[in-house]
Measured scan of single mutants.
Amino acid sequence: KVLVLALYDYQEKSPREVTMKKGDILTLLNSTNKDWWKVEVNGRQGFVPAAYVKVL
Rank of each mutant, 00 (worst) to 15 (best):
Lys1Cys: 07
Val2Asn: 08
Val2Lys: 09
Leu3Gly: 03
Leu3Met: 14
Leu3Ser: 09
Leu3Glu: 07
Leu5Val: 12
Ala6Tyr: 01
Leu7Pro: 00
Leu7Ser: 03
Tyr8Asp: 10
Tyr8Phe: 13
Tyr8His: 14
Asp9Ala: 10
Asp9Ser: 10
Asp9Val: 02
Asp9Lys: 03
Tyr10Phe: 09
Tyr10Gln: 01
Tyr10Met: 01
Tyr10Lys: 01
Gln11Lys: 13
Glu12Ala: 14
Glu12Asn: 12
Glu12His: 11
Glu12Cys: 09
Lys13Gln: 15
Lys13Glu: 12
Lys13Ser: 13
Lys13Asp: 07
Lys13Ile: 11
Lys13His: 14
Ser14Trp: 07
Ser14Met: 08
Ser14Pro: 04
Ser14Asp: 13
Arg16Thr: 15
Arg16Cys: 13
Arg16Glu: 13
Arg16Asn: 15
Arg16Trp: 15
Arg16Pro: 06
Glu17Gly: 11
Glu17Thr: 10
Glu17Asp: 06
Glu17Phe: 08
Glu17Met: 06
Val18Arg: 02
Val18Asp: 00
Val18Pro: 01
Thr19Val: 03
Met20Ile: 14
Met20Asn: 00
Met20Asp: 00
Met20Trp: 01
Lys21Ile: 09
Lys21His: 11
Lys22Phe: 06
Gly23Glu: 02
Gly23Ser: 03
Gly23Cys: 07
Gly23Gln: 02
Asp24Gln: 14
Asp24His: 05
Asp24Tyr: 05
Ile25Gly: 02
Ile25Phe: 06
Ile25Thr: 07
Leu26Arg: 01
Leu26Thr: 01
Leu26Gln: 01
Leu28Gly: 01
Leu28Lys: 02
Leu28Gln: 01
Leu28Tyr: 02
Leu29Gln: 05
Asn30Pro: 03
Asn30Trp: 08
Asn30Val: 10
Ser31Gln: 09
Ser31Glu: 08
Ser31Ile: 09
Thr32Trp: 12
Thr32Ser: 12
Asn33Cys: 08
Lys34Ile: 11
Lys34Trp: 08
Lys34Tyr: 09
Asp35Leu: 13
Trp36Val: 03
Trp36Ser: 03
Trp37Arg: 02
Trp37Ala: 04
Trp37Met: 05
Trp37Leu: 06
Trp37Lys: 02
Lys38Arg: 14
Lys38Asp: 04
Lys38His: 13
Lys38Ile: 14
Val39Phe: 01
Val39Pro: 00
Val39Ala: 02
Val39Asp: 00
Glu40His: 06
Glu40Lys: 07
Glu40Asp: 12
Glu40Ile: 07
Val41Asn: 10
Val41Ser: 15
Asn42Ala: 14
Asn42Ile: 06
Gly43Ala: 08
Gly43Tyr: 11
Gly43His: 09
Arg44Ile: 09
Arg44Ser: 06
Gln45Asn: 10
Gln45Lys: 13
Gln45Tyr: 10
Gln45Cys: 09
Gln45Val: 13
Phe47Pro: 01
Phe47Met: 09
Phe47His: 06
Phe47Lys: 03
Val48Ala: 04
Val48Asp: 00
Val48Glu: 00
Val48Ile: 12
Pro49Glu: 01
Ala50Glu: 03
Ala50Gly: 05
Ala50Leu: 02
Ala51Arg: 13
Ala51Trp: 10
Ala51Gly: 09
Ala51Pro: 11
Tyr52Gln: 05
Tyr52Gly: 06
Val53Ser: 01
Val53Leu: 12
Lys54Val: 14
Lys54Ser: 12
Val55Met: 14
Val55His: 07
Val55Phe: 13
Val55Ser: 06
Leu56Pro: 03
Leu56Asp: 04
